[in-house]
Design a binder for these strands. Structure first.
Length: 109
DNA sequence: TCACTGACCGTGG
DNA sequence: ACCACGGCCAGTG
């Protein structure tokens, strides 16, 4: 009997991982997806983040960026600059919606 | 009910 | 080095 391999299962992993991201670090959709089970579901990670907006506790989705270090989801934060503001508040340097030296701040579980 | 899209990533030509 | 395509899951029209 396989456990219910459903959304709730891996989606919680995603949330847990994102909440484990220390301040001053960032993570990518690919890494989260990979640690959540499948690395090919990076797209769903974004969907999970979207759902994370109305759940508790709040998810620091601003620390989750794409492989390019680009703030792809900034437009989904309610304010197009909210994500950048949050990241800058943590010491990141954002240029053209992109984190400078992003590779140096990548956090891996 | 069927089909398409989505805060992506990796590989191929 | 650049462009194009496929793949995964779930939600919505």
């Amino acid at each position: 009997m396989k456990p219910k391999l459903r959304t709730d299962d891996w989606i919680e992993k995603i949330y847990a991982l994102v909440r484990q991201i220390p301040r001053g670090k960032v993570c990518t959709y690919g890494i989260l997806a990979e640690h959540a089970g499948t690395r090919l579901t990076a797209r769903m990670v974004g969907w999970a983040m979207n759902a994370a907006h109305h759940i508790q506790p709040p998810i620091p989705a601003h620390r989750v960026v794409n492989r390019n270090g680009l703030l792809t989801g900034k437009h989904h934060f309610g304010s197009p600059t909210l994500m950048q503001e949050l990241l800058e508040a943590e010491g990141f340097i954002i240029k053209d919606d992109q984190i400078l030296d992003f590779k140096k701040y990548v956090w891996q579980p």
